[in-house]
Simulated scan of single mutants.
Amino acid sequence: MTKAKSGSVAPELDTPTDLPPQSVEKISTALNGLLADSFALYLKTKNFHWHISGRHFRDYHLLLDEQSAQILATTDDLAERVRKVGGTTLRSIGHISKLQSIQDNNDDYVPPREMLRELMNDNKKVAAAMRKAHEIVDECKDAASAGLLENFIDETEKRTWFLFEATRQEGANEA
């Protein structure tokens, strides 16, 4: 087994690319941060899905299951994009915890509305991070990563919108 020096890619994993090494590093760093946040948001969404309670249980339970599946679906695309440009990606839960910016929630009980609000804010944070990553991949002339991120930003904004609407108080903003 060949072991690469820290910060370099093992020869067996050195994917050919026309991108300069500095661009590969910038893109990989940005996408790996998003990947870590995707895993953190996925697990938090599943946690809340498993522990939701109350009169809107069924609706919220199904909403969070749908959203967690959508978040998980982004992880393979993000990781494979890192590999396609010649970088390496996450290898463990420990690696995720070092890179994630989404805070875990280990509380024994969180009221349903607070769960949805927390997820809404986390999704907003992810969308903002995706926009920053988009700037980086644009700067590096990586159109494929930019296109991927554009779709993921749209999906993240939709999740944010749905969570916002689910947390509105009855009668709020209604004539």
Score class of each variant (00 low, 15 high):
Thr2Asp: 14
Ala4Leu: 05
Lys5Ala: 04
Ala10Ile: 02
Glu12Lys: 02
Pro16His: 11
Pro16Ala: 13
Leu19Phe: 09
Pro21Trp: 05
Ser23Met: 09
Ser23Tyr: 03
Glu25Ile: 14
Lys26Arg: 04
Ile27Thr: 06
Gly33Met: 03
Gly33Pro: 09
Ser38Leu: 01
Lys44Gln: 01
Lys44Asp: 11
His51Gly: 09
Ile52Lys: 03
His56Phe: 13
Phe57Leu: 02
Arg58Tyr: 15
Asp59Met: 10
His61Tyr: 13
Leu63Pro: 07
Glu66Ile: 04
Glu66Phe: 09
Glu66Gly: 10
Gln70Pro: 11
Ile71Gln: 06
Thr74Tyr: 05
Lys84Val: 10
Lys84Gly: 13
Gly87Glu: 05
Thr88Tyr: 09
Thr88Arg: 08
Thr89Trp: 09
Arg91Gln: 14
Ser92Phe: 01
His95Tyr: 02
Ile96Trp: 08
Gln103Ala: 12
Asp104Leu: 09
Asp107His: 07
Glu118Pro: 15
Glu118His: 15
Asn121Leu: 12
Asn121Met: 14
Asp122Val: 06
Lys125Ser: 14
Ala129Glu: 06
Lys132Val: 08
Glu135His: 13
Lys141Asn: 13
Asp142His: 06
Asp142Phe: 00
Asp142Cys: 07
Ser145Leu: 04
Leu148Ile: 06
Glu155Gly: 10
Leu163Ile: 08
Phe164Glu: 12
Glu165Gln: 08
Arg168Ala: 00
Gly171Leu: 00
Asn173Pro: 03
Glu174Asn: 13
Glu174Asp: 12
